[in-house]
Amino acid sequence: MNLLDFARGAVMKWSIAIFLFGMLWRLFGMLLLRRTHDYSEPRVHAAGLGALRSIIRRSWPRREFQARTAYGVTVSYVFHIGLAIIVFGFVPHILFIRNLVGVGWSGLPGGIIYFCAVITLVALVMAIVRRLTHPVLKLLSNFDDYFSWFVTAAPVVTGLLAAGHYGGRYEDLLAVHILSFELLLIWFPFGKLMHSVLLFLARGQTGAVYGRRGAST
């Protein structure tokens, strides 16, 4: 069995299994903790609407906060959108998703994807440089922050190398790319990458609480 078969076979199965099991474990570990009932009389009977509003609105800072957060927000948006285009727009990725879940769509031209990958990488580098230099981020950051950055950046780098055939045999580069993605899958449930799921829960519950109070969500 060569490296590519290994990456596509056993490692892929195990990483998906760990990803799914880890996600469920972490989510249920939180959600099964007790919840207290709120007996206060709501000002607005629209907790659900508040939750929904918060989920949407928190995607962008309120006007009074925009000036002080512009850099971080812009860099984050660039690499998040870039990653989305790469994952869901690159034809081989779409084929992989189709094989996995049976749903596919048409992709974007390779040139656009490579351009997006480079921009994404630049934004990721800007994000990590900021994390390493900004006094607040330096103080807050822990292993999870740096490792999550690494497992996010690694598939972009290995993907670009594989697409450009730089640094080795294509099959080996592809295998390394797949393995780097599998590392991301395995780490996903245990670190901050879970924010892609948790943001709906956290924003939603704050939106529900303050929505029923008639306050800003």
Binding site: M30, T36, R68, G72
Partner: peptide, 27 residues
């Protein structure tokens, strides 16, 4: 005192540091 609500909050922080920019003590 820990319930699901607080657990979700503590699990969700992405260490983006934006909260500092809203806090009068940091600013």
């Amino acid at each position: 005192e820990f319930g699901a609500t607080s657990a979700i909050y503590l699990e969700s922080c992405i260490h983006c540091g934006m909260c500092a920019e809203a806090c009068h003590y940091y600013v």
